[in-house]
Design a protein around this nucleic acid. Structure first.
Lengths: 329, 329
DNA sequence: TTGTAGGCGTTATCAT
DNA sequence: ATGATAACGCCTACAA
């Protein structure tokens, strides 16, 4: 039930090179012959073996995408962007969940290399030195999305500026005690950057940075929930909280709602990312939107360019964020 | 910078067959030789080419997974289950978003076949006859998750029974006007099944099925929102609504909240699936939990068994659902 | 325009 | 225990 190029050749009464030519749409083959071959292909239900092809031509039309966890709301959207563009250029994608675990990252990278992927897309908060060494060694085209490292190509947004702008927005709305629930403080490009944006906004408006107003979170719902409970138990409560990502922000809203604190009247809450859920929650969350789908799509697009060795303007792409004012502020 | 088995052989001063043996952990090679080879591999940073290997041994240790849309909340969780088990058995997965589009499904299936995947996992509401023919023709091991068709292996839950049980729960709570927002009515295994469960529960309790109480939805937030608005505008409102999936249920809750209808006091809402968001929403949604992660994990596990030609008890696996009573009812 | 033959990097059979 | 060699299915000079 599985035929190869030889079978087609025999059936069509031509050589295998001719069959190969029609498969690859070489212009040189005569119309008649082409039709004969096409007919044979059709009749046998023949499909070329991409593995054999890859071995010969040394590319596989597949790329690997390493992300922390597909079941974390942030990633599906960017993966979708990647996949759409990949599909458009006839690439398939290997999905790898790393859980931010360095060992898993290393292992997956090895496997992807062995499977001869043409390139890889990497997400996660930091790239370890080990991984970087490996990347350099194998010399596989790579692009980072949502993070940045050394001279590797990347697509990101300016997290500091974005954070600063949403905190400034809060200040403009007359809030003068603004709390923050941060991300991970060992993570420079997201966690620290957003915290810095918060600090900068305060400074620019001559407001004091008070340590009791900032609590470290961990990006997940629970830490937002707990962070908010902590901030709301302060004797001198904040009137607004900037939460470093939407999932935590939703946790924070939940905490406030449970305590019967009115949003936004008694407490404004703003998030970061614009995950799907943020607009569906009630009240809908004011947030800084990262263009997640676009980050994926553009990342993949750039990767195809790199793979085709097309000229590329810059290897560090910084996309625009946007402020989405909704009901929570 | 890229070496092959020949380079290793030369460097170690042995033949390529020996190198191949140590790579594949053949027992016959002498300790000393093995060490020599391992050293050469190490020094060169050699990684075997999986493509060449696959061509020879006729398996690729990769499987394809076709789902409607990874950015739809339901799928990431099952994909994660699939990937975890796949990883455990050293498989990689090609992720394919079909958008429930038959053409895309056909195209992806062809590509997966050409890339010689060892098996495929298929999700989506129906499998078209065309696709089925193709599956049979290529004879690629396949397993359906969350849907079912002919004699193909599948892992599902009993949607009718689950729907019936949650509606019965509502009835037990003294609701006697229960509305429903359905899924797609052309989709037998999910849409129709859940509607049937609703009908059965009514019947069993000698309640009338009233057409004005059921509105057709489409699984997405917006249709739940609109469906609820419609039901709430009835002169004789339902006191409870069974919504065919969580995303719509959340839309329905949003509609009620906006209209200042108290949940659950004036209106109980229950959903289906138990997506991540359902417990984070306020009020948290009462729902029938599909074991999404397990469906993925078990599906993949069964697939590995099929691939290893291990005996398999049954090809139609029906998992248990569970009722999660939360705040919305 | 078409065919012949070598090779892509492995594995596996058969000798040695 | 090790080595030579023929596949695996395809592409691509080169020859005809």
């Amino acid at each position: 039930m599985k035929f190869n190029i030889k079978d087609v050749a025999k059936k069509a009464g031509v050589s295998i090179s001719t069959v190969s030519r029609v498969i690859n749409e070489s212009k040189v083959v005569r119309q008649e012959t082409q039709e004969k071959v096409l007919k044979a292909i059709e009749e046998l239900g023949y499909k070329p073996n991409a593995i054999a092809r890859s071995l010969k031509i040394k590319n596989t039309k597949t790329i690997g995408i390493m992300i922390p966890d597909i079941s974390n709301q942030f990633y599906p959207e960017v993966v979708r962007g990647v996949e759409d563009i990949a599909n458009m250029y006839n690439y398939n994608i290997f999905l790898c969940n790393t859980d931010l675990d360095e060992e898993k990252e290393m292992k997956y990278f090895d496997v992807l290399a062995e499977k001869q992927v043409d390139g890889v897309i990497l997400m996660g908060n930091i790239v370890s030195e080990e991984l970087y060494t490996k990347i350099m060694f194998y010399n596989i085209p790579i692009i980072l999305i949502g993070t940045d490292y050394e001279n590797l190509p990347s697509v990101t947004i300016d997290n500091t500026k974005a954070a600063k702008s949403i905190v400034s927005y809060l200040i403009k709305k007359e809030h003068n005690r603004i709390g923050m629930i941060t991300g991970k403080n060992y993570d420079p490009v997201v966690g620290v950057a957003r915290l810095n944006g918060y600090k900068e906004a305060l400074k620019e408006n001559e407001m004091l940075f008070e340590t009791e107003l900032v609590v470290e979170g961990g990006y997940r719902f629970k830490s937002g929930y707990e962070g908010a409970k902590k901030l709301l138990s302060l004797s001198d409560r904040p009137t607004a909280i900037f939460v470093a990502n939407d999932e935590m922000a939703i946790g924070a809203m939940r905490a406030a709602l449970e305590l019967n604190v009115k949003i936004p009247d008694e407490l404004a809450i703003v998030g970061f990312d614009n995950i799907d859920m943020s607009e569906k929650f009630y009240p809908a969350l004011t947030t800084v939107a990262q263009p997640m789908y676009e980050m994926g799509a553009i990342g993949m697009r750039v990767l195809t360019k790199i793979l085709n060795e097309e000229a590329i303007e810059t290897h560090k792409i910084v996309l625009n964020y946007s402020l989405l004012e909704r009901e929570s502020s």
